[in-house]
Amino acid sequence: MTDKDPLVPALAGILVDVVWWLERCGDEEVDPDSAVKIMESVGGELLRLPSDQRERLVEVLADLAEAEQDPARREFLESFPSAVGLDEDEDEDEES
């Protein structure tokens, strides 16, 4: 598997789409408590990734945001790492 494996951006895009949909759907589509639990679960799993893989994911998300034509989705892609806590390690490193 190479560093430019297309699977990583594809899966990252799907993950972002699912979370974006959960945030935007109405209460009649998905129970709000269930949506929050799913999003917290996603964030928790991503935080369990080794730091090099989290960094790779953040890079992929930045690449996806840069290529995104839809301004709303681009903004969501740009905010996703912070929203799920992927930038917390960077903050901790800066404080040390």
Results as ranks from 00 to 15, higher is better:
residue 85 G to D: 07
residue 30 V to H: 07
residue 36 V to L: 13
residue 78 E to P: 02
residue 56 R to L: 08
residue 20 W to F: 14
residue 82 S to C: 01
residue 2 T to A: 11
residue 64 L to A: 12
residue 16 V to D: 00
residue 54 R to E: 02
residue 32 P to D: 15
residue 81 P to M: 12
residue 74 R to H: 13
residue 41 S to I: 01
residue 10 A to E: 15
residue 69 Q to W: 09
residue 67 A to S: 14
residue 26 G to N: 13
residue 88 E to I: 14
residue 11 L to C: 12
residue 7 L to V: 14
residue 87 D to G: 08
residue 1 M to Q: 05
residue 24 R to S: 15
residue 77 L to Y: 03
residue 24 R to H: 15
residue 1 M to T: 10
residue 66 E to L: 05
residue 23 E to F: 09
residue 69 Q to T: 15
residue 6 P to H: 02
residue 86 L to P: 05
residue 2 T to L: 11
residue 84 V to A: 00
residue 63 D to E: 10
residue 31 D to T: 14
residue 81 P to Y: 05
residue 82 S to H: 13
residue 89 D to Y: 05
residue 4 K to M: 11
residue 64 L to R: 09
residue 30 V to G: 04
residue 69 Q to A: 15
residue 57 L to P: 00
residue 72 A to I: 14
residue 39 M to F: 05
residue 63 D to Q: 08
residue 53 Q to V: 10
residue 35 A to R: 02
residue 47 L to G: 04
residue 1 M to V: 08
residue 21 W to V: 13
residue 86 L to H: 02
residue 19 V to W: 05
residue 16 V to K: 00
residue 40 E to D: 13
residue 64 L to C: 11
residue 13 G to W: 01
residue 37 K to I: 11
residue 1 M to F: 11
residue 25 C to M: 10
residue 48 R to M: 12
residue 37 K to D: 15
residue 74 R to K: 13
residue 52 D to N: 05
residue 45 E to I: 09
residue 65 A to H: 08
residue 40 E to Y: 02
residue 60 V to I: 15
residue 50 P to C: 03
residue 79 S to R: 06
residue 58 V to L: 04
residue 80 F to R: 00
residue 92 E to N: 07
residue 59 E to Q: 08
residue 92 E to F: 15
residue 48 R to F: 12
residue 40 E to T: 04
residue 13 G to L: 05
residue 66 E to G: 12
residue 86 L to C: 10
residue 50 P to G: 03
residue 50 P to M: 04
residue 31 D to C: 12
residue 76 F to A: 07
residue 24 R to G: 15
residue 1 M to H: 09
residue 30 V to T: 09
residue 96 S to Y: 14
residue 22 L to Q: 04
residue 88 E to G: 07
residue 27 D to R: 07
residue 53 Q to M: 13
residue 8 V to N: 03
residue 18 V to Y: 09
residue 25 C to Q: 09
residue 44 G to P: 00
residue 30 V to C: 13
residue 59 E to M: 02
residue 34 S to W: 12
residue 49 L to F: 07
residue 63 D to K: 01
residue 49 L to A: 00
residue 91 D to N: 04
residue 80 F to V: 08
residue 74 R to E: 10
residue 21 W to L: 14
residue 6 P to F: 00
residue 55 E to S: 05
residue 62 A to D: 09
residue 30 V to W: 05
residue 47 L to D: 02
residue 38 I to W: 10
residue 75 E to T: 14
residue 33 D to Q: 11
residue 78 E to H: 00
residue 9 P to H: 02
residue 14 I to S: 11
residue 6 P to E: 06
residue 93 D to I: 13
residue 90 E to K: 12
residue 59 E to D: 13
residue 55 E to W: 01
residue 90 E to G: 04
residue 67 A to F: 08
residue 29 E to D: 14
residue 17 D to C: 08
residue 58 V to G: 01
residue 85 G to E: 11
residue 44 G to R: 03
residue 62 A to I: 00
residue 4 K to H: 15
